[in-house]
Design a protein around this nucleic acid. Structure first.
Length: 754
RNA sequence: GCACCCUUAGCGCAGUGGUAGCGCGUCACAUUGACAUUGUGAAGGUCGCAGGUUCAAUCCCUGCAGGGUGCACCA
């Protein structure tokens, strides 16, 4: 029971209201009144409205971005539910391969146990235990802010059925010839001991040194004595097999084709020309280290250069680096190389220089590019189709800016490295002959030349189940690849794998696919959004996974910095909910969401939200007191003999309020539908506080006519509805106090029939 | 390097080719009246800087400065 004698206390109300909603079953679309009006599957279908919650990582806990995003989605879902759509907001979590494995590894490290001590099977058991215990924490936190997800449909990216989807997708791409195994230099995290895709790197500006090193030219009296190359990583020179210059660089024109002596190593290496080299950088001459730089590797491919691997998977120098360096860390090797070069007077100069270092997005270790055999998904064709879908407007972003970012990425895309050398994730459905290769892991390469290999060359087959017989030998037990797939490979299937795909006939898939809106953060546009689009093109017959994409503003600290735990700039939304209530937290976030790419978080808006909740509370109390037994649920219709009062409304001072109310409703509707949530909330706020409370209610105190009661009841009902998507708890609570016959919960009341 | 965004009151942000607004904060007054999580009122802005277009620019254009973001093969 609402206690109107006291100020509004969200803590007392919110849990009770949420329980009420859960008991009602209305979060599940199958229980909605609209589902009941279309009982037979064969007949007319109720119109559905579906949003897939971007599955948070199981390791996650709610941050401001989640809170904002959840509020946005809840606003849309609640409005559509009230409008009579069969609404589904499907929640779930992502197994988050590397992130989760790291968390569990860390936990055991404290006890001095490594994952290798436990072994794969045992370790995975522990990860599952961890997931069962902590993995749903973030979903419970979403409940606190009022998210009306259908919890009965909660999915996890490693559920049994989801696993089927992932395997099916892999098989599909493979049969189409889009998945292949390739040898190349990839991004390697030496701490996580796995490959990473280009998108899983973070670049950080660091102070470093640029070394200018002289490489002597093989004797020729007419030419200069040496070429100077600039590098930030002198130790990699031990693996150099060429020096490259731009073809149009006049300075080096006569030198192309000549040979150099690689210092220390004393290897003869050629001078080559390649378009990838910029004349302006450094000296315009670049050392080429094919096995420890992705770009250099590509240059090496174009010029058929030999490859030398001088750094191993743990970031230590190999035997091929020479006996003086073998076993050293790259840092120690660098110092030793520089000392040696100085001794030989081969260092021209050393400049201080800020440069960007690629780091692992999960553990922040410096990336050590490594030659390796990995699995790739060909991107050209998929990217082209995705581009077309976006250009044709089959998927629309809430801002052109995001469209452009997407198209840019799709235009300069490389094949996607989808294999990872970790344990937690979906294992590749690839099986190896034990007598021929025996290798079941993407291995670290020391080969001098790279190839793309056919599976049959590798004595392996792609199969979801373990093959009964090995096609390559007599009766070996084929062994499954030890590799797992990139987490994002499975996330990319989220919009349909959650609805039962690869079974195309499930009731949910038929009824709820495609979805209407995807709302997410901008840093995963490429990582996730675009991959969902091409996955849907491939697996759902070209049908887009969602019609519209909302990229919401990034919530920054007031200083303009990113919110982060390590910087101490983070704000915990749960603390805010504790302090102001969920409604006020939602209000505060949305109130400052005005369409820019960032929003600097300002806590005072939450205070405004709390005050506003209280204002609404008191408005309601006043209206109920004033109307007493004459609370009008419906506005009397014109010419209705029972309500001759209505005529009197024309020209009544309440008439202008009602006009303003209809305008507010109209604008708010339009703004919500355009995803201008902040604008909508401002409009409603201004009407409620300034037009309704400050003016009309003040004036109404001195009047006691039936007209006034009609206007008061009618306006209250409408602002409760209008505000429900934004502030669901308090509006539902007040609604429960209104004297209305055959009253439904506000959550399923009609959006617009008053 | 390329592209994009932002710069308006102490703070966070709206807004418009012609008297500049909201929330929080500040100040004054009011107060057992739905609500002090209140009401009424006030102070506070040459709308980043410099040019240009225009009868008129905070708004359109150009340049500059500061802040931010995305992308890229910065060796």
């Amino acid at each position: 029971m609402a206690d109107f004698t006291k100020p509004y206390d969200p803590q007392k109300v919110e849990n009770e209201i949420y329980k009420k909603w859960l008991e009602s079953g209305y979060f599940n679309p199958d229980n909605l009144p609209v589902a009941k009006s279309y009982p037979s599957a064969g007949g007319l279908k109720a119109k559905s409205y579906v949003i897939m919650l971007p599955p948070p990582n199981v390791t996650g806990s709610l941050h401001m971005g989640h809170a904002l995003n959840a509020t946005i989605q809840d606003i849309l879902i609640r409005k559509k539910r009230m409008e009579g759509y069969k609404t589904l907001w499907l929640p779930g979590t992502d197994h988050a391969g590397i992130a989760t494995q790291n968390v569990v590894e860390k936990k055991f490290k404290k006890e001095g146990i490594s994952r290798h001590d436990l072994g794969r099977e045992k370790f995975l058991e522990k990860v599952w235990e961890w997931k069962e215990e902590y993995g749903n924490k973030i979903l419970d936190q979403l409940k606190r802010i009022g998210a009306s997800c259908d919890w009965s449909r909660t999915r996890f990216t490693m559920d049994d059925n989801y696993r089927k989807a992932v395997e099916e997708a892999f098989l599909h791409y493979y049969k189409k010839g889009l998945i292949y195994q390739g040898e190349r230099v990839i991004n390697w995290c030496k701490r996580c001991q796995t490959s990473l895709s280009d998108l899983e790197l973070e670049h950080e500006e660091e102070k470093g040194k640029l070394y200018f090193i002289k490489y002597p030219i093989v004797k020729n009296s007419k030419l200069q004595d040496y070429i100077i190359v600039a590098t930030t990583r002198p130790e990699t020179m031990l693996g150099d097999t060429a020096v490259a210059v731009n073809p149009n660089d006049e300075r080096y024109k006569d030198l192309v084709g000549k040979k150099l002596i690689l210092p220390i190593v004393n290897r003869e290496i050629p001078i080559i020309s390649d378009d990838a080299i910029e004349k302006e950088f450094g000296t315009g001459a670049v050392k080429v280290t094919p096995n420890h730089s992705i770009i250099d590797s590509e240059i090496a491919d174009r010029h058929n250069l030999p490859r030398v691997t001088i750094i191993n998977a743990y970031g230590k120098m190999t035997d091929d680096a020479g006996k003086y360096f073998a076993g050293l860390s790259t840092q120690d090797a660098r110092e030793k190389v520089v000392t040696e070069l100085e001794k030989q007077n081969l260092i021209e100069k050393i400049e201080e220089r800020a440069h960007r270092v690629a780091k692992c997005y999960r553990c922040a270790s410096v990336i050590e590019p490594q030659p390796s055999k990995q699995w790739f998904l060909k991107m050209n064709e998929l990217a082209e189709k995705t581009k077309k879908a976006i250009e044709d407007g089959n998927v629309r972003f809430n801002n052109e800016r995001w469209k452009k970012i997407s198209l840019d990425w799709l235009s300069s895309i490389r094949d996607w490295c989808i294999s990872r050398q970790i344990w937690w994730g979906h294992r590749l459905p690839v099986w190896f002959c034990q007598n021929q290769t025996g290798i079941s892991n993407s291995q670290f390469l020391i080969s001098k030349q790279f190839k793309n290999k056919n599976l049959s060359d590798e004595h392996s087959v792609v199969s979801i189940k373990q093959p009964k017989e090995c096609p390559f030998c007599d009766g070996c037990q084929m062994k499954q690849s030890e590799d797992v797939l990139d987490t994002w490979f499975s996330s990319a299937l989220w919009p349909f794998a959650t609805l039962g795909w690869p079974d195309k006939e499930t009731k949910d898939l038929k009824e709820f696919y495609p979805t209407q809106v995807l709302s997410t953060a901008r840093d995963i546009i490429n990582l996730w959004v675009l991959r969902m689009i091409f996955s849907s093109i491939e697996f759902m017959d070209g049908q887009m996974p969602f019609a519209k994409v909302i990229i919401h503003p990034t919530v920054l600290a007031k200083s303009g910095q990113r919110m982060s735990k390590s910087l101490g700039t983070g704000v915990d939304p749960l603390d805010l909910i504790e302090k102001y209530g969920a409604d006020a937290t939602r209000f505060g976030l949305i109130y400052q969401m005005m369409g820019n790419q960032d929003m600097k978080f300002e806590e005072s808006h939450l205070l405004a939200g709390k005050k506003f909740a209280n204002k609404l509370w008191n408005i309601s109390r006043f209206v109920l007191q004033k109307t007493g037994d004459n609370f009008y649920y419906e506005l009397p219709k014109e010419n209705d003999p029972k309500s001759g009062n209505y005529d009197a409304l024309d020209g009544h001072e309440g008439d202008s309020l009602l006009k303003k109310l209809s305008m507010t409703i109209e604008y708010a509707n339009k703004d919500i539908d355009n995803f201008d949530f902040g604008q909508a909330l401002h409009t409603i706020y201004d009407f409620v506080w300034h037009d309704f409370a400050d003016k009309y209610i003040e004036e109404s105190k001195s009047k006691d006519t039936n007209d006034v009661k009609i206007v008061l009841s009618h306006t209250l009902i409408n602002i409760l509805k209008l505000l429900h998507p934004f502030m669901p708890f308090i509006t539902e609570e007040i609604w429960s106090e209104l004297p209305i016959k055959d009253k439904k919960l506000l959550i399923v009341s009609n959006w617009s029939n008053n």
